[in-house]
Computed example of a mutant assay.
Amino acid sequence: MSKQSRIEAVARAVQDLQDATDLIDELAARRLGVNRTDVRCLSRLTARGPLTASELASGAGLTGGAATTAIDRLERAGLAERVRDTADRRRVLVHLSERGRAAVEEVWGPIAAEAQAGLRRYTVAELEVVETFLRLALLNQTRHAERLRKDNAEE
């Protein structure tokens, strides 16, 4: 297979993965009774732990007002809760609730477990290549999300 053919195959595999991830997120949102934005917030809280509303907004690509609305919905659904920071009582952190942690484990736990089992087949050097590719892909996506945000703001 030529290098160009391999690049095209990787690009197709990435697109297929994005589509499959999109479907999982849609089905998870339906199962949890929330919307896709809320699922994105759950993902950030799962990956990063408790966050302030502004940290959550930034990580999920939301405005402050949109993040507040999403946090309100997550609280009503019993998936997250606002908790005063014990180190700084002026700060409020958004935590996954016990129900939220259980829901995340139920929906995404089996996916993560299978992915980790698959990754164990690779050498450290191969995993470094995969990680480098994913980090570069993330930078690319982040850059273009910002471009689209700016384009949308100008319309």
Rank of each mutant, 00 (worst) to 15 (best):
D38E: 15
G33P: 01
V92M: 03
L56P: 02
R147Q: 12
A70W: 04
A57E: 02
R31Y: 12
A125C: 03
V129M: 08
A29S: 13
E131Q: 15
V129I: 12
C41I: 00
V129E: 14
I111L: 15
V124N: 07
L27H: 11
A117S: 09
A112I: 12
K150W: 11
A66E: 14
N152H: 09
A153Q: 10
K3P: 06
R36P: 02
G49H: 05
L27G: 03
L62E: 02
I71F: 00
A103M: 05
N35T: 04
A102Q: 07
V34M: 03
V10T: 06
L136C: 09
R89F: 08
I111D: 04
R30K: 13
A29R: 00
A102S: 08
Y122V: 03
V39H: 03
R12H: 03
D19P: 01
L93E: 06
T46N: 15
L134D: 09
T69A: 14
S5Y: 07
A102D: 15
V92L: 06
G78P: 03
R91W: 02
R82P: 04
E114V: 08
I71L: 00
L51E: 07
L74P: 05
S43L: 08
V10Q: 05
R30H: 08
E105L: 07
R99D: 14
Q116C: 02
L74F: 07
L56D: 01
G109D: 01
L23R: 15
S5E: 15
L119T: 02
R44I: 14
E98S: 15
R99P: 02
E106M: 08
L74Y: 05
R76S: 14
E155L: 12
T86D: 13
A87G: 09
R82K: 13
T37A: 09
Q18Y: 12
C41D: 04
T69I: 14
L127V: 03
S5L: 13
D85M: 01
E128L: 13
S54F: 09
S54R: 09
S54M: 11
G78H: 00
D22I: 00
R101Y: 05
Q4T: 11
A102C: 01
T46M: 10
H144M: 12
E114S: 11
A87K: 14
T46Y: 15
V130C: 06
A20H: 05
I111S: 05
Q15R: 13
A103S: 07
I24G: 03
E8T: 08
L136H: 12
A113I: 06
N35Y: 05
A70T: 00
G49F: 04
Q15I: 10
E55K: 06
V124Y: 11
R6Y: 04
G61C: 04
I7M: 10
R40Q: 11
G33L: 00
R120T: 11
V130K: 10
E155M: 09
E81I: 03
L56I: 01
K3W: 13
N35W: 04
R36Q: 13
V14P: 01
G33N: 00
R101S: 14
T46V: 08
G100F: 01
S43D: 14
R76P: 05
N152W: 13
E146L: 14
E8K: 12
C41Y: 01
A20T: 07
Y122D: 05
L138H: 15
